[in-house]
Write a protein that binds this DNA or RNA. Structure first.
Lengths: 163, 163
DNA sequence: TGCTGATCATCAGTATACTGTCAATATGTC
DNA sequence: GACATATTGACAGTATACTGATGATCAGCA
């Protein structure tokens, strides 16, 4: 049996586990109660007002079922607004609220601190190399997960699913 | 706002997401219904018969609450045996069953294939470097998560929790 | 021996993540 | 314009993961 430390899968899980823990502790220390997903969703919607859920899911590479619950909780917290889309009655247009915008602005330093903390053991060069290798591995495996990253073009159309 | 691709936390989640998807598809293709955690737990118990749950959690760096559910499901599937420990009546001694051993043997090629697949975009050198950097970052952040890795010494004693 | 603090397993509660399915609605084609 | 097909959002179900609490038990010590 191979050592766990030789298994990319095990290392991936451990690193992500630490990343999430660091995110939580930094966010909490700054006085916010946002999870990593919630932050990513909020930031994406802030940058793309009127987004629908499927496009949002594609932009941050989450499953659309998962995003439903995430958006629910953000709406409940008053950070997001979900209204029926005018152009497509199946879709819901997502918009950030004023409170959401304040939260996003306020939490950003904590998020950036967390990103630095989770690679505190690496030099700058090593951190850059780690990110390069992760990006490369992810690009090669993008289509292997149910929630691949989708480039959203400006007009809201999505790339066809290549499943 | 920084690009997601510059955020170690985002990359970590994406990579792990792909890793889990690859594990599942390989395991399923081989005819097994085991999750990554379940596999890790089964392998650890196979190598250390009579393990209790807390020590197991420390060995594979999972939260002890999570491990409870994982062990439950493995017992239900008939792959594990959970008996009261003789030496410590609080603890449960975990042992792999014959069926569990067969499952472990049978699934191992699929697990190894999955480990290769999730880094298919990298050269051997790059894969080794990625694993080295992940190990380094993890070592520096080990104590930051609720479920740090604990070296179990041979006699079943654990390192003292440093919380 | 009796007490105190630590440890093991479990429970309740919350939030991801995924598979699979379904109703409502769009869209492309004839 | 009717229809086959695809898409959006939702739901049910399963499995991680975590926080915080509790009961049972153990180990060290007065």
């Amino acid at each position: 049996m191979k050592d766990n430390n030789e298994m990319p899968g095990h290392l991936a899980r451990r690193f992500q586990q630490i990343a999430v823990a660091v995110f939580h502790s930094q966010a909490e220390a700054a006085g916010y109660d946002l999870t990593p997903v919630q932050y990513a969703a909020l930031a994406a919607i802030s940058a793309n007002p009127g987004l629908d859920q499927v496009t949002l899911a594609g932009m941050i590479a989450y499953d659309r079922t998962t995003i439903g619950g995430v958006v629910d909780r953000l709406v409940q917290k008053g950070l997001l607004e979900r209204t029926a889309s005018v152009k497509d009655r199946r879709a819901r247009a997502l918009r950030i609220t004023e409170e959401g915008r304040q939260t996003l602005t306020g939490i950003t330093p904590a998020v950036e601190a967390a990103q630095r903390l989770m690679i505190q053991g690496l030099s700058d060069d090593e951190a850059n190399e780690l990110m390069r290798l992760l990006r490369k591995a992810i690009a090669a495996g993008n289509e292997l997960s149910r929630a691949p990253l989708r480039e959203a073009d400006a007009k809201g159309g999505q790339a066809k699913a290549g499943r």
